[in-house]
């Protein structure tokens, strides 16, 4: 029977073929069996809201496949995308551990498998499985480091064009595919969402991307952005 959205769904974490590539999930068979006993597997379509900022934490969501955007709202009501979560990330872990309200909202950007663990089960799992707790420590350290990088980028950039250049360079480093000096990026975000990543307006993003296209720094075809002159983007960044 075909799986929803033709996804490769792993019902058991212990049988997952990609778990060794994941910071949190790369654990022993025994620990993964304990995880299997408490997790609920679901497949979500694009645009599914996993949790909302301000809600009491119900549990954590392990993003097994697909991506999700994490957003927060400023005091002035602006929406900001704080992160695009990648497969393998554990969403809501910090709030579940602290028992505080979710600090961000999480919404899927593409269809994907998500494993849910109830908060009480997650805490018991971390308390009873030393390996899981260590992996959670490493996972949160990585999350903190990556969030610091985001803040640095936002806080030290002088101009919006510099912020956009930094964002494109970050994407190049993370997931760019280089062929003959041109780097291809697969961008799932709309101009509005790119604006929300760097705290500006959709109109500004549209204008800045047009400028970059006109100068042949980038080219855009559908959801693909081709970075043709990476050095020009680097020259725009002062960080």
């Amino acid at each position: 029977m075909p799986s929803p959205y033709n996804l490769d769904v792993h019902d058991r974490c212990s049988d997952c073929s990609v778990r060794e590539e994941r910071l949190f999930c790369n654990m022993s068979d025994e620990t993964m069996a304990a995880l299997d006993a408490i997790k609920f597997t679901s497949v979500y379509p694009k645009g599914s809201v996993l949790f909302v900022e301000g809600e009491q934490p119900r549990g954590v969501f392990i993003l097994c496949s697909g991506k999700a955007k994490l957003t927060t709202s400023s005091s002035e009501g602006k929406t900001l995308i704080v992160k695009i979560a990648e497969p393998g990330e554990v969403l809501g872990a910090s709030t579940a551990i602290l028992g505080k309200k979710y600090e961000v909202s999480a919404e899927t950007l593409e269809p994907g498998q998500v494993n849910f663990i109830r908060r009480e089960d997650f805490i018991r799992f971390l308390g009873g499985q030393a390996e899981a707790c260590m992996h959670a420590v490493q996972h949160l350290s990585e999350k903190y480091h990556s969030a610091q990088r985001g803040i640095r980028s936002l806080g030290l950039s002088q101009t919006t064009s510099e912020k956009l250049a930094r964002l494109l360079l970050d994407w190049c480093a993370k997931s760019g595919e280089e062929t003959a000096g041109v780097i291809r990026l697969h961008v799932l975000l709309t101009h509005e969402e790119i604006a929300q990543m760097i705290g500006t307006t959709r109109e500004t993003i549209t204008r800045l991307l047009s400028d970059l296209k006109r100068k042949k720094v980038i080219a855009v075809k559908g959801a693909s952005v081709f970075i043709q002159k990476k050095s020009e983007l680097e020259a725009m960044v002062s960080i």
């Binding site: 927060t72 704080v82 872990a93 910090s94 709030t95 551990i97 602290l98 505080k100 600090e103 961000v104 971390l126 707790c133 959670a136 420590v137 949160l140 350290s141 999350k143 903190y144 969030a147 610091q148 803040i151």
Partner: peptide, 12 residues
Amino acid sequence: LRQLSSDVNSIY
């Protein structure tokens, strides 16, 4: 783990 959770939340 709790301290790191708190650090992550403070970043937001």
